[in-house]
Protein backbone atom coordinates (compact mmCIF):
# COMPACT_ATOMS: atom_id res chain seq x y z
CA UNK A 1 0.00 0.00 0.00
CA UNK A 2 1.39 3.41 -0.92
CA UNK A 3 0.51 7.03 -0.30
CA UNK A 4 -1.81 7.03 -3.29
CA UNK A 5 -4.32 5.12 -1.13
CA UNK A 6 -4.09 7.64 1.68
CA UNK A 7 -6.88 10.08 0.75
CA UNK A 8 -9.35 7.18 0.79
CA UNK A 9 -7.94 5.82 4.05
CA UNK A 10 -8.15 9.28 5.55
CA UNK A 11 -11.75 9.76 4.49
CA UNK A 12 -12.82 6.37 5.88
CA UNK A 13 -10.95 6.73 9.19
CA UNK A 14 -12.09 10.29 9.74
CA UNK A 15 -15.68 9.30 8.98
CA UNK A 16 -15.57 6.33 11.36
CA UNK A 17 -14.02 8.42 14.11
CA UNK A 18 -16.63 11.12 13.56
CA UNK A 19 -19.33 8.47 13.98
CA UNK A 20 -17.57 7.27 17.13
CA UNK A 21 -17.66 10.77 18.63
CA UNK A 22 -21.32 11.06 17.71
CA UNK A 23 -21.93 7.74 19.46
CA UNK A 24 -20.11 8.87 22.57
CA UNK A 25 -22.14 12.05 22.84
CA UNK A 26 -25.35 10.25 22.00
CA UNK A 27 -24.63 7.91 24.88
CA UNK A 28 -25.41 10.75 27.24
CA UNK A 29 -29.02 10.49 26.12
CA UNK A 30 -29.15 6.80 25.26
CA UNK A 31 -26.53 4.86 27.20
CA UNK A 32 -26.76 2.00 24.74
CA UNK A 33 -25.24 4.20 22.01
CA UNK A 34 -21.89 3.91 23.76
CA UNK A 35 -21.23 0.64 21.96
CA UNK A 36 -21.34 2.65 18.71
CA UNK A 37 -18.53 4.81 20.07
CA UNK A 38 -16.33 1.78 20.73
CA UNK A 39 -17.08 0.02 17.47
CA UNK A 40 -16.61 2.98 15.14
CA UNK A 41 -13.50 4.12 17.00
CA UNK A 42 -11.76 0.76 16.65
CA UNK A 43 -12.88 0.43 13.04
CA UNK A 44 -11.24 3.77 12.25
CA UNK A 45 -8.06 2.71 14.06
CA UNK A 46 -8.02 -0.58 12.17
CA UNK A 47 -8.19 1.14 8.79
CA UNK A 48 -5.32 3.47 9.69
CA UNK A 49 -3.29 0.62 11.17
CA UNK A 50 -3.65 -1.46 8.02
CA UNK A 51 -2.51 1.52 5.97
CA UNK A 52 0.55 2.12 8.17
CA UNK A 53 1.55 -1.55 8.04
CA UNK A 54 1.02 -1.64 4.28
CA UNK A 55 3.09 1.50 3.82
CA UNK A 56 5.83 0.06 6.04
CA UNK A 57 5.88 -3.05 3.83
CA UNK A 58 5.94 -1.13 0.57
CA UNK A 59 8.71 1.21 1.71
CA UNK A 60 10.88 -1.57 3.11
CA UNK A 61 11.69 0.69 6.03
CA UNK A 62 9.78 2.08 9.01
CA UNK A 63 7.65 5.02 7.82
CA UNK A 64 9.10 7.42 10.39
CA UNK A 65 11.52 9.49 8.47
CA UNK A 66 9.77 12.39 6.82
CA UNK A 67 7.58 14.93 8.59
CA UNK A 68 4.57 13.55 6.72
CA UNK A 69 5.32 10.11 8.11
CA UNK A 70 5.63 11.39 11.66
CA UNK A 71 2.27 13.15 11.22
CA UNK A 72 0.87 9.76 10.32
CA UNK A 73 1.99 8.31 13.65
CA UNK A 74 0.72 11.36 15.44
CA UNK A 75 -2.67 10.81 13.83
CA UNK A 76 -2.47 7.22 15.07
CA UNK A 77 -1.59 7.96 18.70
CA UNK A 78 -3.76 11.04 19.29
CA UNK A 79 -7.11 9.23 18.98
CA UNK A 80 -5.74 6.32 20.98
CA UNK A 81 -4.80 8.59 23.87
CA UNK A 82 -8.13 10.39 23.60
CA UNK A 83 -9.94 7.06 23.72
CA UNK A 84 -8.01 5.83 26.74
CA UNK A 85 -8.62 9.15 28.49
CA UNK A 86 -12.30 8.81 27.78
CA UNK A 87 -12.37 5.27 29.15
CA UNK A 88 -10.28 6.11 32.20
CA UNK A 89 -11.70 9.50 33.23
CA UNK A 90 -15.02 9.57 31.35
CA UNK A 91 -14.05 12.76 29.53
CA UNK A 92 -15.73 12.57 26.16
CA UNK A 93 -14.54 16.02 25.08
CA UNK A 94 -10.91 14.85 25.22
CA UNK A 95 -11.76 12.12 22.74
CA UNK A 96 -13.51 14.61 20.49
CA UNK A 97 -10.62 17.10 20.57
CA UNK A 98 -7.90 14.54 20.07
CA UNK A 99 -9.77 13.10 17.09
CA UNK A 100 -10.13 16.60 15.69
CA UNK A 101 -6.37 17.19 16.08
CA UNK A 102 -5.60 13.86 14.47
CA UNK A 103 -7.88 14.65 11.53
CA UNK A 104 -6.21 18.05 11.09
CA UNK A 105 -2.72 16.55 11.08
CA UNK A 106 -3.66 13.68 8.79
CA UNK A 107 -5.50 16.18 6.60
CA UNK A 108 -2.24 18.07 6.10
CA UNK A 109 -0.85 14.87 4.61
CA UNK A 110 -3.73 14.69 2.13
CA UNK A 111 -3.43 18.33 1.06
CA UNK A 112 0.33 18.51 1.07
CA UNK A 113 1.87 15.15 0.21
CA UNK A 114 5.65 15.26 0.42
CA UNK A 115 7.52 13.17 -2.06
CA UNK A 116 7.85 10.08 -0.02
CA UNK A 117 11.19 8.53 -0.38
CA UNK A 118 12.03 4.88 0.03
CA UNK A 119 15.67 5.47 0.73
CA UNK A 120 16.81 5.36 4.31
CA UNK A 121 20.23 6.85 4.80
CA UNK A 122 22.74 4.63 6.58
CA UNK A 123 22.81 6.68 9.79
CA UNK A 124 19.09 6.05 10.27
CA UNK A 125 19.41 2.29 9.91
CA UNK A 126 19.57 1.51 13.59
CA UNK A 127 17.71 -0.53 16.17
CA UNK A 128 17.13 2.77 17.99
CA UNK A 129 15.25 4.35 15.12
CA UNK A 130 11.81 2.86 15.83
CA UNK A 131 11.81 3.23 19.64
CA UNK A 132 13.21 6.77 19.44
CA UNK A 133 10.55 8.01 17.04
CA UNK A 134 7.58 6.10 18.47
CA UNK A 135 8.33 7.19 22.03
CA UNK A 136 8.70 10.80 20.92
CA UNK A 137 5.55 10.91 18.85
CA UNK A 138 3.63 9.26 21.66
CA UNK A 139 4.92 11.92 24.05
CA UNK A 140 4.01 14.68 21.58
CA UNK A 141 0.50 13.33 21.23
CA UNK A 142 0.04 13.15 25.02
CA UNK A 143 1.44 16.61 25.56
CA UNK A 144 -0.82 17.97 22.83
CA UNK A 145 -3.76 16.68 24.85
CA UNK A 146 -2.28 18.33 27.94
CA UNK A 147 -2.11 21.64 26.07
CA UNK A 148 -5.77 21.35 25.12
CA UNK A 149 -6.56 20.57 28.74
CA UNK A 150 -4.58 23.63 29.84
CA UNK A 151 -6.57 25.87 27.52
CA UNK A 152 -9.78 24.39 28.86
CA UNK A 153 -8.60 24.97 32.43
CA UNK A 154 -7.77 28.61 31.66
CA UNK A 155 -11.20 29.02 30.12
CA UNK A 156 -12.82 27.52 33.21
CA UNK A 157 -10.73 29.80 35.41
CA UNK A 158 -11.95 32.79 33.48
CA UNK A 159 -15.52 31.61 33.91
CA UNK A 160 -15.04 31.58 37.67
CA UNK A 161 -13.66 28.39 39.12
CA UNK A 162 -10.95 25.95 38.07
CA UNK A 163 -12.28 22.44 37.96
CA UNK A 164 -10.19 19.96 39.88
CA UNK A 165 -10.93 17.26 37.35
CA UNK A 166 -9.43 19.30 34.50
CA UNK A 167 -6.26 20.18 36.36
CA UNK A 168 -5.84 16.62 37.55
CA UNK A 169 -5.99 15.49 33.97
CA UNK A 170 -3.35 18.02 32.90
CA UNK A 171 -0.98 16.76 35.58
CA UNK A 172 -1.51 13.12 34.69
CA UNK A 173 -0.90 13.81 31.00
CA UNK A 174 2.25 15.80 31.70
CA UNK A 175 3.77 13.22 34.03
CA UNK A 176 3.24 10.43 31.53
CA UNK A 177 4.20 12.62 28.57
CA UNK A 178 7.33 13.85 30.31
CA UNK A 179 8.35 10.29 31.11
CA UNK A 180 8.13 9.46 27.40
CA UNK A 181 9.96 12.66 26.47
CA UNK A 182 12.80 11.57 28.76
CA UNK A 183 12.89 8.11 27.19
CA UNK A 184 12.99 9.64 23.73
CA UNK A 185 15.82 12.00 24.64
CA UNK A 186 17.92 9.22 26.15
CA UNK A 187 17.22 6.73 23.34
CA UNK A 188 18.28 9.46 20.93
CA UNK A 189 21.47 10.09 22.90
CA UNK A 190 22.41 6.40 22.94
CA UNK A 191 21.69 6.15 19.23
CA UNK A 192 23.75 9.29 18.62
CA UNK A 193 26.70 7.64 20.33
CA UNK A 194 26.47 4.64 17.98
CA UNK A 195 25.85 6.63 14.82
CA UNK A 196 27.70 9.94 15.20
CA UNK A 197 30.33 9.17 17.79
CA UNK A 198 28.89 11.19 20.65
CA UNK A 199 25.69 11.18 22.68
CA UNK A 200 25.21 14.92 22.47
CA UNK A 201 26.24 17.10 19.55
CA UNK A 202 24.24 20.33 20.17
CA UNK A 203 22.44 19.75 16.91
CA UNK A 204 19.58 22.30 16.59
CA UNK A 205 17.00 19.54 16.98
CA UNK A 206 18.75 18.38 20.14
CA UNK A 207 18.84 21.93 21.45
CA UNK A 208 15.10 22.34 20.93
CA UNK A 209 14.37 18.88 22.32
CA UNK A 210 16.26 19.91 25.44
CA UNK A 211 14.31 23.19 25.62
CA UNK A 212 11.03 21.29 25.30
CA UNK A 213 12.09 18.94 28.06
CA UNK A 214 13.08 21.85 30.32
CA UNK A 215 9.80 23.72 29.88
CA UNK A 216 7.79 20.67 30.97
CA UNK A 217 10.27 20.24 33.80
CA UNK A 218 9.43 23.80 34.88
CA UNK A 219 5.71 23.02 34.77
CA UNK A 220 6.18 19.96 36.98
CA UNK A 221 8.16 22.00 39.50
CA UNK A 222 5.65 24.84 39.59
CA UNK A 223 2.84 22.36 40.20
CA UNK A 224 4.71 20.40 42.83
CA UNK A 225 5.84 23.47 44.71
CA UNK A 226 2.79 25.69 44.45
CA UNK A 227 -0.31 23.68 43.54
CA UNK A 228 -2.36 26.76 44.34
CA UNK A 229 -0.83 28.75 41.47
CA UNK A 230 -3.05 27.20 38.84
CA UNK A 231 -3.12 30.01 36.32
CA UNK A 232 0.66 30.46 35.78
CA UNK A 233 1.04 26.70 35.64
CA UNK A 234 -1.60 26.36 32.94
CA UNK A 235 -0.09 29.21 30.93
CA UNK A 236 3.28 27.47 31.15
CA UNK A 237 1.70 24.26 29.94
CA UNK A 238 0.04 25.92 26.98
CA UNK A 239 3.28 27.74 26.07
CA UNK A 240 5.28 24.54 26.42
CA UNK A 241 3.40 23.08 23.49
CA UNK A 242 4.53 25.98 21.32
CA UNK A 243 8.15 25.11 22.15
CA UNK A 244 7.35 21.48 21.37
CA UNK A 245 6.01 22.39 17.94
CA UNK A 246 9.10 24.47 17.18
CA UNK A 247 11.11 21.39 18.07
CA UNK A 248 8.99 19.08 15.95
CA UNK A 249 8.82 21.05 12.71
CA UNK A 250 9.47 24.74 13.34
CA UNK A 251 13.16 24.06 13.82
CA UNK A 252 13.49 23.24 10.12
CA UNK A 253 12.79 26.89 9.33
CA UNK A 254 15.12 28.47 11.89
CA UNK A 255 18.42 29.95 10.74
CA UNK A 256 20.12 27.94 13.46
CA UNK A 257 19.09 24.68 11.79
CA UNK A 258 21.27 24.90 8.70
CA UNK A 259 23.10 21.65 8.38
CA UNK A 260 21.17 19.86 11.09
CA UNK A 261 21.40 16.09 11.02
CA UNK A 262 17.69 16.00 11.82
CA UNK A 263 16.29 17.84 8.79
CA UNK A 264 14.95 15.47 6.20
Amino acid sequence: MTWSAFPAVFAVSAGLWGAAVAGVYLARLKPRAEIMGHLFFWAGMAVLTIFILGLWGSLDRPPMRTLGETRLWYGFFMPLIGYLTWRRWKLSWVLAYSILMAVVFLGINVLNPDVHDRALMPALQSVWFVPHVIVYIFAYALLAVSAIVAVKALYEGRRGQFRVKTITLADNMVYIGFAFLTLGLIFGAIWGKEAWGHYWNWDPKEVWALLTWIVYLAYIHIRAHRPDLVRPAMWTLAAAFVVLMVCWFGVNYLPSAQGSIHTY
Binding site: F162, I167, T168, L169, N172, V174, Y175, I176, A224, V230
Partner: peptide, 20 residues
Protein backbone atom coordinates in the same frame (compact mmCIF):
# COMPACT_ATOMS: atom_id res chain seq x y z
CA UNK B 1 13.17 7.58 36.93
CA UNK B 2 11.04 8.00 33.81
CA UNK B 3 9.38 4.66 34.43
CA UNK B 4 8.70 5.87 37.95
CA UNK B 5 7.19 9.13 36.66
CA UNK B 6 5.01 7.15 34.29
CA UNK B 7 3.75 5.03 37.16
CA UNK B 8 3.28 8.14 39.29
CA UNK B 9 1.47 9.88 36.45
CA UNK B 10 -1.68 7.95 37.23
CA UNK B 11 -2.14 9.53 40.62
CA UNK B 12 -0.03 12.65 40.87
CA UNK B 13 -2.68 14.96 39.49
CA UNK B 14 -5.24 13.78 42.01
CA UNK B 15 -2.78 14.26 44.79
CA UNK B 16 -1.67 17.70 43.72
CA UNK B 17 -5.17 18.94 43.13
CA UNK B 18 -6.25 17.81 46.55
CA UNK B 19 -4.18 20.77 47.60
CA UNK B 20 -5.91 23.06 45.15
Amino acid sequence: GAVYLFWLGKDIGTELTQKT
